[in-house]
Design a protein around this nucleic acid. Structure first.
Lengths: 341, 341
DNA sequence: ATAAACAATGTAACCGATAACATTTATTGT
DNA sequence: ACAATAAATGTTATCGGTTACATTGTTTAT
């Protein structure tokens, strides 16, 4: 692999001239430029960007902490990030953290070892909180999707509380009075926010909130299936289930159908995220659409602003949601269906 | 950010000693080691890995060309790669190429600019074929999942032809004689291989292959839906549809149900990949399971072997498939159902 | 006691590009 | 024609580690 010196020798100029030919060609005479260009081609010279990055102290790498790349929603977010990063000449170091704090800390530390310039965190966990407590909020990080309670960095989020309220109102308008909820992990702020929105709507509607109708899940299909199973074997009446994401909704529907229930005639089910599968499920899923790609794009652009020093750290972007009504939700049955059969 | 020289000064030793304390502590006396360690802690020194990578010429980065991270199957492959890479101290530079050749060439070239050590390509396209034709097969690349026709590098694949034969035999055994196929893009070798396997099985069973029953798709839900739509509006009898992946199968099922057809009583549908949704669809999908994570893991390990110079380039790993029979396939109806109603 | 062998540490070149500064060459004005 | 200025090019320190080689200090063997 040839280096800049070999090119300089072959072209009969100095290394500075070669460097200038590539960086500021207008400073080099056309004659010299031609010589250099020829030498570059002859040697098939490609600048060693590792050297450039080392010297400049800018890696143009961004570490992205993703809880699970296998999640369809995150896959869309990643796509948005990818495009925004490419447009600005940045590369993404994607890390599938499986929600493991230690893993996130390790990878976030790549900015300390000069392997990356900044971090995008898609989970409500501060990977720097540990041993760099003092530096919190000063490190180039952007938090998107699932937001920290007291973020010191720019954030990109949805108003989950309001979105959950909108969904709940939709169910209430259909006449549902006994609404169960399949939640995400208790540790997730998303879950707390969506639950608050759910409660808000119930209160407005004059319905009472029932703790026994809250079921735990972990955003996977299987957990939705299992939660539905628990719903079927308890005694409270239920005419609708508000699931905190589409995967769990689809898992729940699978279990409800296996029990012989019709959706939405016997029981309504709603999701959250509007993943591609939502439109093609049977019945198509009522859900909340999030601008996933825009989450990624915005997060990356904010981070790049931070890196360029031209962003205020207090930026909090809130993206719009959209209630998508399909056929998995319908009017509440005249009288509660017996779930345990 | 402190550097090795500051540490050396504070500890009262030379930079070489600091370096050795970190790299080969056994060469440093315990007394000195303690001094250095203390200085490192005091300054919160973290080696600049960019400098290390630059000096060593090894980036420990691997470029991964993924057609779409949004594809659930690839998401699993990525997860496998991630784990294998982390175990060996490598980072992944994930690139969502959208199947664009130019994009792939640009990113693959990162190994020329010393930004990455090797490439994992998940598509049947040689990103080096362009202007580096001479070097083909000499560059550190591993091709997985969708394989080049004449690969010059190690590959990891499934025997797609045999898997498709197994699936087709399953349908034939159920009595299906009029089997349609929803294919992937014609450019994909996967499609060619699976079609060959499909033909093999038909021939063995003494059934004739019918070109009119081949429908194009692009591995997305929507394309499966659209293809099913075309199947419904043509005149040949069809009692089963072999879809080349699960997404298209789920899309097709959605359309068939909308037409009032029962699955599998009226028409059977099979998929390929066994994504998580396959188990929870209605009906659960008969499909071919691929060890997705193992694809990723094997690809990364092969590449690392290549990078270490201890792998022969002719390695071709073939991973096992598994026919998963669920309820989307069933006995062929006694007499062909009228599709166009 | 002294040479030989070994352990511990230091010195400085090096990786490849960039850019501040120095130097040479060309152009302009009078 | 010659100084003044501008344009083009060259020289070299620098980024932060690693490591070959040199040097100094400590044991061991005879």
């Amino acid at each position: 692999m040839s280096n800049i010196r070999e090119v300089a020798d072959l072209a009969g100029v100095s290394v500075a001239t070669v460097s200038r030919t590539l960086q500021q060609p207008e400073l080099v005479s056309p004659k010299t430029r031609a010589k250099v260009t020829r030498a570059i081609e002859e040697l098939n010279y490609k600048p060693n960007l590792m050297a450039v990055k080392f010297r400049s102290g800018k890696t143009h790498n961004i570490v992205v902490l993703v809880p699970t790349v296998a999640n369809v929603f995150f896959a869309r977010v990643i796509r948005g990030m990818q495009e925004a990063a490419a447009a600005e000449g940045y590369s993404l170091l994607l890390v599938n953290t499986m929600g493991d704090n230690a893993t996130e800390q390790i990878y976030a530390r790549m900015i300390h070892t000069s392997q990356a310039d900044g971090v995008v965190q898609l989970r409500a966990f501060n990977p720097f909180s540990d041993n760099d407590a003092d530096e919190q909020g000063l490190l180039p990080m952007v938090n998107a999707c699932e937001i920290l309670d007291t973020p010191q960095c720019p954030t990109v989020s949805l108003d989950n509380r309001l979105a959950a309220t909108a969904m709940t109102e939709h169910l209430v308008e259909l006449g549902h009075q006994h609404i169960a909820m399949i939640k995400g992990p208790a540790s997730s702020p998303l879950t707390r926010e969506r639950m608050l929105g759910f409660k808000d709507a119930l209160q407005t509607a004059g319905l009472k909130f029932c703790e026994e109708l809250m079921f735990d899940g972990d955003f996977t299909l299987q957990s939705g299936y299992d939660a539905a199973d628990r719903i079927l074997s308890q005694s409270h009446p239920v005419s609708a289930i508000f699931c905190e994401n589409d995967e769990m909704a689809l898992g729940a529907i699978s279990r409800l159908k296996a029990a012989g229930l019709r959706i939405p005639e016997d029981i309504s089910v709603s999701g959250f995220d509007n993943i591609a599968f939502a439109k093609f499920s049977d019945p198509p899923l009522t859900t909340i659409a999030q601008p996933a790609e825009e989450f990624g794009e915005t997060a990356i652009n904010l981070l790049i602003d931070v890196l360029k020093g031209k962003a205020k750290r207090a930026v909090k972007v809130i993206l719009p949601y959209q209630l998508i009504i399909r056929n998995s939700t319908g009017p509440a049955p005249a009288q509660p269906v017996n779930l345990t059969r």
